[in-house]
Structures are given as C-alpha cells and as structure tokens.
C-alpha cells in the first residue's frame, strides 16, 4: 500500500513538472496551426457558408441577393438544357479517362521500377509532360490533331485511312481528344511517382518467398504487387475521380465547350453561369450540388474499399 501511494505521488509530481512544458507545446502547436486555421475558416468555411446562402438567392454581384428558396435547385433539374448533358459528358470524361490514367500510371511505374540502365533518365522523360503548362499542351495537341493539316491525320491518311477523325473539331471525337491529351500529360506525372513510392514499399522478402515457391513474373505481379498496391490504387482513384469530375481548363482553353456543346462539362457550365452570365446564385446551387455528388461518391468509394483494398501489416 505504501509502495502504491508512493508511486501515485511520483506520478503527481511528474504531471506537475511536465505541465508547463506541455502547455507551451500546445501553445506552439496551435500557433503554427494558426495560418492554416485562419485560411480554412476565412477562405473555405466562410465562403462555403456564404455560397450555400447564395444558392438560395437570385444574385448577380451588382444587386443585393434576393431570397428565392429552392428555385435554383428546381431550375437545375427541370429548366436548364445543359445541366443533365453536362453531367453526362463529365461522367464520360471521368469514367473513361480516370481508369485509363490510373492503370497507365501503375503499369508505367511497374516498368520503371525495374533495375534497368538509365532508369533516372526514363523516369525524367516520362515525368516531363507534367511540367508542360496546360495551355501550351493544348496548343501542341490541337496542332497534332488538326483535322486537315495535323500530323496525326496526315499520318493516318498516308496509311490509307480516307476519312480520319476530326478530333477537337468533331463532336464525337472532342472528348476522346481531351482524354488522350490528359493521359499524355497525366500518366507519367505525380500519379506515377506515387505508384513508384508504393512499389518501393513492398517488402522484398515477399518476392523472394514467391520465387522460392516457383511463382512466375505474372504470378508475382498478380498475387504480390497488385494486392499490396491496392491502397495506392485506391488513393489515386479517389484523387483521379475528383479531378476528372472537376475537369475544366483543357476544355476551356481547347474548345470553349464546343463544338456544339460537345465539351461543355459541368465545371465549365458552372463557370459560365458564374463569371460569364453573372447568375451567381444559380452557380452557387450548381456548385453545392456538385460538392454533394463528389463527397457522396468519395464516401461510397471508401465503403467499397473495405472489399478490395489490402493494407499489409494493417
């Protein structure tokens, strides 16, 4: 009993002595957090709440907002000819572009994870398109894919294709053209770097064990590499889908939503409503609808991930 009391006394003394230090640690912790917190509250939460209110108003920046209840939300579902088509185009873009991009990055990372000569040079080479500004990239791709004078169609014609695609100028090919441009720029970029990091985190002994068991390269890829990469795949999928659904710049620069609305994506529609047509209230409603969709989709993916994502040692 005496020993026990003595032990409690020691703990109390230690707590007393550590308290000032802990207090200062907390103070510095919050102090260093302050810039982020100020930004979070002032530039994210504040505008977010404001935009939620504005989504219930008719507001054009130049006049005070007029409260109209849920009219903006009703309008988007019933009286906006570009609402549903723009969602369809966005899903098409993200639905095709993101899986291709994630798979492409993964297999490129697997290739570049091999011990081959001049490996840094290859990694640099594949990373370089990411460094090209998107506007420059658009100019380059529009030149490459020009319907009549472009290098690609000249090559296709010389190979005997009489009527090659019109690419950016053809409604059927405009989105595939943007996807191709996005893949060129994105496959070897940060996503590939993340996959490389994931690959290098796979314990070597698992491959050794598989080799001892006589596993082929394909079996190692299928049974070791891919399962242990699933957290990285999941992470890249989440970011890719969010980025894909938000696609804007390439369409804005390359096609301005055309031809004939072919690349009029949801984000472009939102931008047009806000900054070209000055329907800020309606644009805020579109933004909130979009935010809910993205958050829901992300949560749904998180739930699904328990079925296929494998955390080694976790």
């Amino acid at each position: 009993m005496a020993a026990l009391t003595s032990r409690f006394d020691v703990a109390a003394v230690m707590r007393r002595e550590l308290a000032p230090r802990k207090r200062w640690q907390n103070f510095y912790g919050y102090l260093f957090l302050t810039p982020w917190l100020v930004g979070f509250l002032g530039l994210f939460i504040g505008p977010g709440i404001t935009s939620l209110y504005l989504s219930l108003t008719k507001y054009d920046v130049l006049s005070p907002p007029i409260f109209i209840g849920f009219d903006n939300y009703v309008k988007m579902f019933t009286d906006d000819p570009q609402f549903w088509p723009s969602i369809g185009r966005t899903i098409y873009y993200a639905g095709v572009g993101v899986p291709l991009g994630v798979l492409g990055s993964m297999f490129l990372a697997i290739l570049l994870n091999n011990k081959i000569r001049a490996l840094p040079a290859y990694r640099t080479l594949f990373f370089m398109p990411t460094l090209v500004p998107i506007v420059a990239s658009v100019v380059l791709w529009k030149w490459l894919l020009n319907d009549d004078f472009g290098v690609v169609n000249q090559a296709l014609r010389s190979l005997g294709m009489a009527d090659p695609p019109g690419w950016f100028g053809d409604r059927r090919w405009a989105i595939p053209s943007l996807i191709a441009m996005g893949l060129w720029q994105g496959i070897g970029g940060t996503r590939m770097i993340i996959f490389l990091a994931g690959l290098q985190g796979i314990p070597e002994e698992l491959y050794d064990a598989a080799s001892i068991d006589g596993a082929s390269s394909w079996a190692k890829l299928w049974n070791v590499t891919i399962p242990l990469l699933t957290p990285t795949i999941f992470f890249n999928m989440i970011l890719g889908i969010i980025g894909g659904l938000q696609t804007f710049t390439a369409a804005f620069v390359a096609t301005e939503g055309g031809p004939g609305f072919a690349t009029w994506f949801f984000s472009l529609h939102l931008y047009k409503q806000a900054f070209d047509y000055w329907n800020m209230g309606y644009a805020a409603a579109l933004a909130w609808f979009f935010a809910v969709i993205i958050v829901s989709l992300t949560m749904w993916q998180m739930r699904l991930s328990t079925r296929w994502v494998f955390y080694y040692g976790g």
């Binding site: 529009k142 020009n146 319907d147 009549d148 096609t255």
Partner: peptide, 12 residues
C-alpha cells in the same frame, strides 16, 4: 473547315 479545324486562321 469544321469548328476548330483551323487553329490559327491568320497563320493558316
């Protein structure tokens, strides 16, 4: 030319 078939009309 279809829309976008000539990227830079002046240069063309």
């Amino acid at each position: 030319p279809a829309t976008g078939a000539i990227e830079n009309v002046g240069a063309a």
